[in-house]
Design a protein around this nucleic acid. Structure first.
Length: 594
RNA sequence: GGUCCCAUAGCUCAGCUGGAUAGAGCAACAGAUUUCUAAUCUGUCGGUCUCAGGUUCGAAUCCUGAUGGGAUCACCA
C-alpha cells in the first residue's frame, strides 16, 4: 500500500527464504508488503498467495514456512503469525528505536537530496480586469504547495506567473472607467485597486446588456445586437489603439493595471504565495509566430487558401486546430506555443507544470501534442496540473449572478471566524494584541488552506459559503493545535536532544508513531510524483492523530523513568518537526501556542 | 452527438501499481479532565463502494458497456 521505506531487508530475506525453501527465483516486484491491519498482531504483512505456485502448498503453510525461516534467520524479526494468506511479522522494538535515533530524530529526508532536475511551476496567472475569487484561491494554493513539494523532493523549482494583462476584457474595464469612472482611484475611494477595476468591468457588462436589449427591441437578433452594440465596438477599437501603441490608451492601461497589481499583491501576501518570475502577455502575445513558420517548414502545419494556418490532429483522435488567423494575428494557442519556447529558453528546465483548471484540458492536450510533433525535446516534460472547479451548493460560481466568493472577503471572514472560535475557548489570555492578530490569521488561513488542499486536485470541490469551514476533526486547526500542544510539552520538558538513554522496548503507540514518521520522505515523493498536495495533507493528519493517541495514553514529562521521559520528549520533537515541515509544504503555518 | 473527467456512510472526503471484516471527519447518541492545552481522546450508530458483465485464487481498485453529474468540442482567453 503506501510508502513503506526502510523495509528492504524484509524483501531480501523473503527472497532468500523462497530460494531456500522452494528453490524459487522470484523478483522483488513479486513481493507485496503492506502495513499490518491494526486488528492483527504485527507491523508488516507479506501476502503469500502469489507464492503458492512455487511452494505447491496452501497459503497458510507457505506463510508458516516463510515466517519460521524469517524468525530464525533475521534478527529484527521477533515473531510472526499467519492468517489465511497473510504472514504478519512483528519487528523487534530495538529496530524501531534504531530507526528513530539514526534517521528520524536527525530529520533525514525532511528535505531530499537535490536530484539535479529543474522544474517550473506556473500558477495563478490572473486576468487583470477583476479581483481574485475562490477558484483562483484553489489555483494559488495548489501551485504554491506543489512547488514546495517538488523542492522538498529534490528539484530546483521556479515559480512563474503568466499575467493576462491585455485583451478585450481589459479594455472593457478601461472603457467603462473612462466613461463613468468620474475620476475614481483607489486613493480617493479607499477601494482596493483590483476591486475598483472589477467594479467597472461589471459596469461595462451592465451597460452593454442595456444596449443589446435596445437593439433587440429595434428588431435585431441577439447575435447582431451583441456585435453591433456601440460599447463593444468602442472596446474593440480601444484594443486596436492599444496594439498600435496609442499613448493615451497605453497610459490608462498602465495606470489601471497598476491599481490591480497593488491589489493582487495584498491578496497574494494574505495567501502567503509568491513567484520567482513574472511573464506578461502584453510582452508575449506576439510570440509564437516563429514557431508557426517552423511548423510550416517542417510540414507539421499547413496553410489553407485564405492564408490561415492549421494542424491536423485527427490521427490523434483530435480535430483540426487553427494556430494562426488568416490575417496573421495570433490565437490563444499561438501565444502559448511561443511562451512555452520562451520559458524553456529562459530556464532550460526538465519539467514544466501548468496549474490550470480542467476546463482547459483540451487546450493543453493540443498544446503539448503540437510541441511534441514539432520535435521539441522538452515537450515530454510538460504537464498540465488540471484541477476541478470550485462549486457552490447552487452550482457554478457566476460573476454575473453575483455568486462569486471573493478571495479577500473570504480571507477576512476566515480570520474573523478564527477569532470567534479562539475567544470562545478562552485560549489567548497571555497574548498581546499583535500575537492575537497573528494567531487568528494563522488559524483562519490554516483552516481555509487545509480545507482546499486536502481534496484530490482533480476532483471538484464543494464550498458552502453559509456553512463555515470546520475547526475540529480533519482540519488545519486540528493539526495546528496538535503542534502547539506538542511544543508546549517540549518547552516544559527542557530537553537535551543529544541525551540518549538506552531503551529496549516501546509501546504500540510509540511504535506506530515512529513508523509513520519514518514514512515522511516517501510521502513527499508520492505527493511530488502525483503533483498532489492532498497526499501530504492526509499524511500529516495521520501523524497528528497518532500523536494525540500517544499523548492520551502516555505521560511525557511525568514518565515512569528518566530514560522514558527523554525518549518521549525526543519523539515529541520529531513529531512536531514533521508536522511543521509537512504543513509548511501546504503553505500552512503552525503556531507555538494556541 | 464526439472526446475527456468524476461517482465510496445522511454530508465532506481517504483508500485505487488488485489482497484480510472498505476507513476518517462532520452530523446524532453515550462516555473520558484531582494527571503534560478537551480546537483532544474512547465508544455506538451508519455501506448492494452508481448499475451490469468480464479478467483473477482474490476487484472499491483493472477491462467493457450502461446510467447520472461536470467540462470541452470558437479565427475567446
Amino acid at each position: 500500500m503506501i510508502n513503506f521505506v526502510p523495509m528492504d531487508f524484509i524483501i531480501d530475506a523473503t527472497l532468500k527464504a523462497l530460494k531456500h525453501l522452494y528453490n524459487a527465483d522470484i523478483t522483488a516486484e513479486d513481493i507485496s508488503l503492506q502495513q499490518t491491519r491494526k486488528e492483527f498482531e504485527g507491523q508488516v504483512t507479506i501476502v503469500t498467495f502469489p507464492f503458492t505456485k512455487v511452494s505447491r502448498k496452501s497459503p497458510e503453510q507457505t506463510g508458516a514456512d516463510i515466517g519460521e525461516y524469517l524468525k530464525n534467520e533475521v534478527a529484527e524479526i521477533a515473531d510472526f503469525n499467519v492468517i489465511k494468506g497473510f504472514l504478519n511479522l512483528s519487528i523487534a522494538d530495538v529496530y524501531w528505536l534504531k530507526q528513530f535515533y539514526n534517521h528520524i530524530l536527525p530529520g533525514d529526508g525532511i528535505v531530499a537530496e537535490p536530484n539535479g532536475k529543474k522544474v517550473m511551476v506556473e500558477y495563478s496567472s490572473p486576468n487583470t480586469n477583476k479581483p481574485l475569487h475562490l477558484g483562483h484561491v484553489r489555483n494559488n494554493l495548489l501551485g504554491y504547495s506543489v512547488a514546495n513539494i517538488l523542492a522538498a523532493a529534490g528539484y530546483e523549482v521556479i515559480k512563474a506567473n503568466l499575467v493576462n494583462d491585455r485583451g478585450i476584457h481589459i479594455c472593457k474595464s478601461m472603457l467603462a472607467w473612462q466613461k463613468w469612472g468620474d475620476g475614481e482611484t483607489p486613493e480617493n475611494t479607499g477601494m482596493k485597486g483590483d476591486h475598483l477595476v472589477g467594479k467597472y468591468y461589471v459596469v461595462f457588462d451592465k451597460e452593454y446588456k442595456k444596449q443589446i436589449d435596445d437593439l433587440k427591441a429595434a428588431g435585431q437578433t441577439e447575435d447582431e445586437a451583441k456585435k453591433n452594440a456601440p460599447l463593444i465596438k468602442q472596446a474593440q477599437q480601444m484594443l486596436q489603439q492599444w496594439e498600435a501603441g496609442d499613448q493615451e490608451v497605453i497610459d490608462l492601461w498602465s495606470t489601471m493595471n497598476g491599481w490591480v497589481y497593488a491589489g493582487f499583491e495584498k491578496t497574494y501576501k494574505a495567501l502567503g504565495v509568491d513567484f520567482d518570475k513574472f511573464y506578461y502577455e502584453s510582452n508575449t502575445y506576439l510570440l509564437g509566430k516563429d514557431i508557426v513558420d517552423e511548423g510550416l517548414e517542417k510540414g507539421v502545419f499547413f496553410k489553407k487558401e485564405d492564408g490561415s494556418v492549421w494542424i491536423d490532429l485527427t490521427e490523434d483522435g483530435l480535430d483540426q486546430k487553427l494556430v494562426l488567423r488568416a490575417d496573421g494575428t495570433s490565437v490563444y494557442i499561438t501565444q502559448d506555443l511561443g511562451t512555452a519556447q520562451l520559458k524553456y529558453n529562459d530556464f532550460n528546465m526538465d519539467e514544466s507544470i501548468y496549474v490550470v483548471g480542467n476546463e482547459q484540458d483540451y487546450h493543453f492536450k493540443v498544446l503539448f501534442l503540437i510541441l511534441d510533433k514539432l520535435g521539441k525535446s522538452w515537450a515530454r516534460g510538460l504537464y498540465h496540473l488540471s484541477y476541478g472547479m470550485v462549486d457552490l451548493p447552487s452550482g457554478k460560481m457566476k460573476s454575473r449572478e453575483g455568486t462569486v466568493v471573493d478571495a479577500d472577503d473570504l480571507i477576512r471572514e476566515m480570520k474573523e471566524t478564527a477569532k470567534e472560535h479562539t475567544e470562545a475557548l478562552g485560549k489567548v489570555d497571555g497574548f498581546d494584541e499583535e500575537e492575537k492578530t497573528t494567531l487568528y490569521q494563522t488559524i483562519g488561513m490554516g483552516a481555509l488552506k487545509y480545507f482546499l488542499l486536502k481534496v484530490d486536485p482533480k476532483k471538484r470541490l464543494l464550498f458552502d459559503p453559509n456553512e463555515s469551514v470546520d475547526f475540529q476533526g480533519h482540519t488545519g486547526p486540528f493539526i495546528q493545535y496538535s503542534h502547539a500542544r506538542i511544543r508546549s510539552v517540549i518547552s516544559r520538558g527542557a530537553l537535551q536532544l543529544e541525551d540518549v538513554m538506552p531503551l529496549t522496548e516501546v509501546s504500540a503507540e510509540e511504535r506506530d508513531l515512529i513508523m509513520v514518521l519514518g514514512q515522511y520522505p516517501e510521502a513527499i515523493q508520492v505527493a511530488a510524483q502525483g503533483h498532489n498536495p492532498a497526499a501530504i495533507a492526509n499524511y500529516v493528519y495521520e501523524v497528528a492523530k497518532l500523536y494525540n493517541k500517544f499523548y492520551h495514553e502516555h505521560q511525557v514529562i511525568n514518565a515512569e523513568t528518566e530514560a522514558l521521559k527523554r525518549f518521549r520528549l525526543q519523539l515529541s520533537t520529531a513529531t512536531a518537526n514533521v508536522i511543521k515541515a509537512g504543513m509548511g509544504l501546504l503553505g500552512i503555518d503552525v503556531p507555538e501556542r494556541m
